[in-house]
Design a protein around this nucleic acid. Structure first.
Lengths: 253, 253
DNA sequence: AAGAACCGTATTGTATGCGATTATTGAAGA
DNA sequence: TCTTCAATAATCGCATACAATACGGTTCTT
């Protein structure tokens, strides 16, 4: 069912011939990349889902060329799996990969904490406080809002280091964590304990690098145990059926 | 001057019609990606160099499409800079970016050290020892061999963690370090002190995670001070002229 | 002669098309 | 009824073609 396929938000007609102030003609390839990235992170595209080039291109109003380019980049970031001659899927990390991601993330964010300890400007400090207050508010009605906010807290911290590479890696790891929690996480345990965020800010402001690092480490560790313990949606049918077989005295080959 | 343009190692004509056993038809896009990546790391393509799509495609025997795809991925990894409508260049990291990369790398490799401490199998241990011996031998004649080997030592360590993401990040950081040292590094100070590698192995084998992490940290720190201190080729004319201005009592705006 | 506007060329951005590979369906055989 | 196999449909891999943009040199203006 080929729907109208509106040509993506990008590059509006622009009434006057002049460039409208700071209007860099951003390549649409990047727009496609961002769109897919968001769709995956927000789980509009679910883990493991097939990603056919032309239907996606149709939906976004671009040709397969651009979609392919986006796939390539997303594959580097581990958000899509690219199988030769068999197309692309939203990545479906194994439990092992999940552990790897969390381990690396812990290392990275520990670095963030160490970097930031004793270097927060009053403005940054205030921004973090405000953010935590938002988290608390959202935590009460426990919507998806809560999840998004706790994620953003960590991104904000990474931004404040001023280290672009560190930010990129933290973002990447975070994205993959979203995927992972979508697969293996409990329904909606809002992943981060707000109180732990508070303590962390405290340590950062006090300039206690070691304590900040330890808090961060522990914080992320507990995210794993809190949210990641129960593998729900199995990837392989065999995993789903195994317990049934056992209870019936059958032995899977 | 359009030379013959031999079609890349990929997909040889294959005399018999049959697929030769385990012959996965690797996508040529990936071959292009790898080729460019290596060329950049080995500095056949120098930092800042222009990368025109069609001449590169011609040389590799592929169309611009594949070259562009490769550029996209390399850009994600920070090895090329992609400017809209103005093409691609080999990345030319600023000193600030350089520091960022080294900081992240330190964090990552510290993680490697912690992960590996007390977990080295005898085989791995032996492999590392052998590698260090190679380094020592190469160190005497101080060729480019020496540099390559010290880099590989770190990659080997990352591999041994079994953490794919960690390996990827360490590799990425290493690649960018190559670029950085090509710009800001001393001519051929073989970057790593072999003795430090030895000590590290020692600590890993002893299972002393804290000491291993500290050694790694210190080791990478000293790479920076050893090799990175003297900014040679400046990117910006202003940097070059500033000292002259000062010595003449002029004040740059 | 210095600067601005113009135009041809080179290069990039994107769509489309064709051959190749894989998935699917349905029929014949066991 | 369950396989095996073949024909067809769907999808991918890649090259090519066309449109849009930026660069360099030239000419025109002041």
């Amino acid at each position: 069912m080929p729907r109208p396929a509106r040509p993506l938000a990008a590059n509006k007609p622009r009434p006057n011939g002049k460039t409208a102030a700071t209007d860099a003609p951003v390549p649409r390839a990047q727009a496609v990349y961002k769109a897919l990235r968001r769709a995956i992170i927000e789980q509009a595209l679910k883990p493991g889902m097939k990603l056919p080039e032309d239907s996606i291109g149709e939906q976004l109003g671009v040709s397969r060329t651009l979609v392919r380019e986006a796939f390539g980049r997303l594959a580097v970031e581990g958000l899509v799996e690219l199988k030769p001659n068999r197309g692309a899927n939203v990545a479906y990390p194994t439990l092992e990969e999940a552990r790897d991601v969390f381990e690396v993330r812990r290392g990275l964010e520990r670095l963030v904490a160490e970097n930031l300890a004793g270097r927060l400007t009053p403005a940054q400090s205030a921004e973090l406080e405000a953010h935590v207050r938002l988290e608390e508010k959202a935590h009460e009605q426990d919507g998806p809002e809560s999840i998004r906010l706790s994620g953003e807290f960590h991104i904000k911290l990474a931004e404040m280091t001023g280290n672009a590479l560190l930010l990129r890696y933290v973002q990447e790891a975070s994205s993959r964590c979203s995927l992972i929690l979508a697969i293996y996480g409990r329904p909606h345990s809002s992943e981060c304990a707000v109180s732990e965020h508070r303590q962390l800010i405290e340590a950062l402001r006090a300039g206690d690098a070691a304590r900040a690092a330890a808090l961060m480490d522990h914080h992320l560790q507990s995210v794993v145990t809190r949210a990641l313990l129960a593998p729900r949606g199995e990837r392989d049918i065999r995993d789903v059926l195994a317990p049934y077989a056992l209870s019936e005295g059958l032995t899977p080959s």
